[in-house]
Amino acid sequence: MDDAAETPVTHDFDKDYWERRWGGGEDGSPAVMGAHPASPYLATETSELPAGTALDAGCGGGAEAVWLAARGWDVTGADISAEALARAAELAASEGVGEQVRWVEADLATWEPDGRFDLVMTHYAHAAIPQLELYDRIAEWVAPGGTLLVVGHLHTHHTGHDDHHPPAEASATPASITARLDPDRWDVVTAEERERATGAHEGHVATLHDVVVRATRRG
């Protein structure tokens, strides 16, 4: 069994945790999370899909949801942090797609959407349940014929407990994700480990080690 699946959760990843990350601490400490461009994997993995309904599970600041909305998708962005959603709504308005995105304050560990979606995606989202169980939950929200897109932190021996190396329980591998997709119900299109450089931090460019999985739910 994959190590990421067995590692016990040492972070709560609850509402208080994410509000602190997005809004800063009560002691006036700055927010850890900030604005970022949409994931480059979004374009490569969805460019051939017809626009339809989409759910961004754990949408954070809304970059990916706004990117889809600008390309004709009807998007729902769900996140546990009210601060993150406020920033996402501001971004959508500034990009002229404020009417195309519905923002929902929701705990992905317990929330159930009121329908299914042509595309369900998540980018580095963590909830107060084991990571692979989160992926199990959001996979159930994909409509027949629809697409699941998971972008997450790759489980490697470099995984740590700081801002650049997520805790082990928040990571996965392509094999650990695809093993939970019933082959009678899913066709796996992409299951890869990828690396990319991100913005400089204290004069250094960080390298992100990612897992990217895309699957189509059979009709």
Rank of each mutant, 00 (worst) to 15 (best):
A139Q: 00
G152V: 00
A143P: 04
P167M: 13
S94G: 02
H201Q: 04
R71G: 12
V32D: 14
V212F: 03
A65S: 14
R87C: 07
W18V: 06
D136V: 07
S47P: 04
G23C: 09
P167A: 14
P37I: 10
A143M: 00
G25C: 10
E99K: 14
V101R: 02
R21I: 05
T46F: 07
E99D: 15
A215R: 03
A43I: 13
A125N: 07
L85H: 03
P183G: 11
A143Y: 01
A109C: 13
T198G: 13
D14Y: 04
A5C: 09
G98Y: 03
D74R: 09
S94V: 02
E105A: 06
H157F: 12
A65Y: 07
Y17R: 11
A86H: 03
H36E: 15
T53C: 01
T216P: 10
A69G: 00
Y41G: 07
P50F: 05
A127N: 06
G28E: 05
A82I: 05
E45D: 07
T10M: 01
L134M: 06
G58Q: 03
A92N: 02
E95K: 12
A93Q: 14
M33W: 14
A57V: 11
W186D: 06
G52P: 02
V212S: 06
H201E: 05
G62S: 14
E83Q: 14
W22M: 05
F117V: 03
V66D: 02
V205Q: 10
H204W: 10
D163W: 13
H123I: 14
G160D: 08
T216H: 14
H164N: 12
